[in-house]
Design a protein around this nucleic acid. Sequence first.
DNA 1: CTGTTAGCGCATTCAA
DNA 2: TTGAATGCGCTAACAG
Lengths: 361, 361
Amino acid sequence: MPEKSEPPGTASASVVASASVAKKGARQRRVTITDVGTAAGVSTSTVSRVLNGTARVDPELARRVQDAVAELGYRPNAAAQGLARGEAGAIGVLVPDLSNPYFLDVLKSVSAVARSNGRRVMAMESDEDATSEHELAEDLMRCCDGVLLCSPRMNRAELVDLSMRGHPVVLVNRIVPGLSLPSVSVDFYGGMTLVCGHLTQLGHRCVAYLSGPEASWANAERIRAFDAAAAFGVDVDVTVIPCGHTARHGYAAADAVRDSGVTAVVAYNDLVALGAVTALEDSGLRVPEEMSVIGCDDISLDDLPSSRRLTTASLARDELGRQAAQTLEALMAANGDTEPKLIPMELRVRHTSAPPAVPAH
Amino acid sequence: MPEKSEPPGTASASVVASASVAKKGARQRRVTITDVGTAAGVSTSTVSRVLNGTARVDPELARRVQDAVAELGYRPNAAAQGLARGEAGAIGVLVPDLSNPYFLDVLKSVSAVARSNGRRVMAMESDEDATSEHELAEDLMRCCDGVLLCSPRMNRAELVDLSMRGHPVVLVNRIVPGLSLPSVSVDFYGGMTLVCGHLTQLGHRCVAYLSGPEASWANAERIRAFDAAAAFGVDVDVTVIPCGHTARHGYAAADAVRDSGVTAVVAYNDLVALGAVTALEDSGLRVPEEMSVIGCDDISLDDLPSSRRLTTASLARDELGRQAAQTLEALMAANGDTEPKLIPMELRVRHTSAPPAVPAH
DNA sequence: CTGTTAGCGCATTCAA
DNA sequence: TTGAATGCGCTAACAG
């Protein structure tokens, strides 16, 4: 046991004084639980007890401990707690793109749930890159009690790999048959079905779909919906145009849309749709009179002018985040609720969809 | 030394097999560095060395270690590393509101800088609440090597308190004279000066300002700019209308704007401005013909239609985040660069500002 | 170049 | 109720 160590501040020193001195001096030794114990004249276990409420402690001792804590400005070291307790007190969230307001809302509600459970949240962004995604996910697993994988682009094998670590992971917006990972996803298939219905009812027969990232499950689901429409005998012809996931991508794809001779275009998401609208209008085409444009995600914030303009498939993003976080929480509590959850979408008809200029006869 | 412990997988067992067994069985013991050492027939220090590249190791031993790592699926425990190394490998970012795209962009660029320095980022949101903000900041300091406080609402005393912890903290969008914390901020004062100039040149004399959160330094800076304009003899009368920071707030404040008899309104930020535009147009007023509306932050994403509509004061948000992160990094490396950095704003004249309907004679 | 020995700061047994 | 002892998993002196 070290005898020579002198606590960085005696019980009689004021917090301010000791701290300000420390600030300027050489990198001071952090105040530890031992310092508190010494100052309060109790053992470290007692300090730990009063701080965590783990067991009953004599009120008098408790007071002395709290005083010492205040006096010394003691803050438990998170790493040490994590090591001793065997849990990090944090959950990780991995998203493909932090710039997308969509994920922000998810992050926000996840964050709220996590906090209410006394957990911090660690956010990472994969930049739509499947390779880095796997690494980042591994890294998150190393420092978090559980991980939320949002719209993961990684392949099935990598997902299987992660699922076998025996570490709580839940998938958001991705359903992989046969995988033992719980998942919470938006019903994009249902959403696009609504969009199809809307367009055909307006009289559109030739529609383009601005396709998102190749590896996106959400993208595949949307396409699956179009295919199904055709299979069900719906009289609509869908041209898939490779595009991307940002407004810039949508902007760049506008020419291809014009050239394809369609009367309406469905975009991978609202960002793409807004980019397309801009480009289309720039080129002199009127939306929706000459070209209907439909988005997905209903990304705009409440009361925004743009939010009222774009016809889109909408969902409760906060609900998505909340359910995802709760599912993860349940998983960490060892309750394996592996049923995939689906969040429904609604069609939001606004100002960018209308009957085609030249209706099909 | 424990003799009876049996590693969760022998060196000859495949990763898949051992992992899948573990998944279903009782909560398995995590693979530790000791297991790896045993499997590879070396000491834990050697394992540590090859994993961290801390020192030269015999190639043969290194290979055995790497094989064992792969075989056992070993991942270092982040908490243990943090404790042993004395650093968490993460930085914390505290923002008032995660829903605001403004902070998203900051978070994104901060995140990029952090990652390139091998650090994770922990994000927290204070919900514009000064009280929780202080607590959250403390919590972040416990588990991160450094903290970025974005647009902090807490009072000076609390800031002083944090600054005395001898823990790296940098302020973003807040400058507190006499405080020994580095800061990186947007030059809102300069930005609003540009806006004032633009409006007076257009001929506006009566202008309203939709004021943001009371505790917001950015808000105070904007108001300071208006005051200064008056002081400099600029012929403009500014009415300050208490409002808020969201689109909804802006929407709700539109009536007050109309009643105030002004010909132009400057909003706390773009969200508020967009809300105001929506409400104004809903009430039959034409923007900008009958009312000019100017925002701040240039929040919209590239190529978005709305981004081309709103006249606003713009800045390079990624630059803000990058500089903030770099300043923090420098601070953590013990380089005290306490000079407050200022990011300039530019006026972005778009479609929501025009001369007043009834020009001043 | 490698193994042995100590802690890092805290929670938690186990006795008292 | 309390304190002493032990270990969480890893890194870093220190010897060899």
